[in-house]
Amino acid sequence: MAQLVEVTVGVIGRAHGVRGDVNVEPRTDEIERRFAAGSTMRTDQGESLTVADFRQPSGRLIVTFTEVADRTAAEKLRGRALVMKIAPDERPSGHDEYFDRQLVGLRVLGTDGRARGTISGVVHGPAQDLLVVDVDQDERMVPFVRALVPVVDVDAGSVQLADVPGLLDDEVAEA
């Protein structure tokens, strides 16, 4: 079996109520999958936690852990990251969705198939995600939308960009 990878799935916020529930700022799009009852995770400080239940009133994520009995215990966890170990080949449940760890390191190809750079990061913006592309040690941001990134082939280790002047260089199309 392949070595498991550790991913951050959330950050614990303030306590919610007196029974040990906590607000969690999610770091995953797959809340139902990661916070399902019985899921185990740990904090970045090493505490092991088991999800008893979660709910999402008004878009917030509130989680109950079996190990957290009261508000005092919940407050002690505030600010800690929640991490899980998952299989490195695990794929998101949605079609055309990718984990950041699957994208980082992919070669960026032009429409001619020529290597143009490497994805060095993903920025999650309010309107859309951005791919951070290292082009000869210069960072370029590319909106991660189908019109600009029509091909993503994780198995081949590459993405292909649309032919748009100035996307990865300082070229400006002449009018």
Results as ranks from 00 to 15, higher is better:
162 A>I: 11
161 L>D: 09
88 P>M: 12
168 L>F: 08
51 V>F: 05
51 V>H: 00
58 S>T: 02
79 G>V: 06
36 A>P: 00
101 R>T: 03
156 A>P: 10
35 F>P: 01
119 I>P: 02
94 G>L: 15
114 R>I: 14
174 E>R: 08
100 D>Q: 07
45 Q>Y: 08
122 V>H: 03
158 S>K: 09
169 D>E: 11
1 M>E: 10
130 L>E: 13
110 G>H: 12
1 M>N: 08
40 T>G: 08
72 T>K: 12
45 Q>E: 15
105 G>F: 03
4 L>C: 05
48 S>A: 13
48 S>T: 10
70 D>A: 08
100 D>R: 04
59 G>F: 12
27 R>H: 11
22 V>S: 00
60 R>D: 13
68 V>A: 02
48 S>H: 14
104 V>A: 01
59 G>R: 03
44 D>F: 01
91 R>C: 04
118 T>D: 05
175 A>M: 07
97 E>T: 09
3 Q>C: 09
148 L>F: 13
17 G>Y: 05
12 I>S: 01
57 P>R: 02
117 G>P: 02
49 L>Q: 01
142 V>I: 13
27 R>Q: 13
39 S>Y: 00
122 V>Q: 04
123 V>H: 15
131 L>F: 11
11 V>N: 02
99 F>K: 02
3 Q>N: 11
113 G>T: 01
14 R>F: 15
12 I>M: 06
69 A>N: 04
10 G>P: 00
152 V>F: 14
170 D>W: 12
113 G>N: 06
141 M>I: 07
108 V>Q: 03
158 S>W: 08
18 V>P: 00
114 R>E: 15
40 T>Y: 10
59 G>N: 04
87 A>R: 05
97 E>I: 03
167 L>H: 02
66 T>F: 11
122 V>T: 01
138 D>R: 03
169 D>A: 07
169 D>Y: 06
90 E>G: 08
124 H>V: 14
153 D>E: 15
10 G>N: 01
96 D>Q: 13
127 A>S: 10
8 T>K: 12
143 P>D: 14
76 K>M: 15
113 G>M: 09
25 E>R: 03
87 A>T: 13
6 E>R: 10
73 A>R: 10
157 G>I: 10
37 A>N: 03
10 G>V: 06
78 R>A: 15
30 E>K: 01
36 A>H: 02
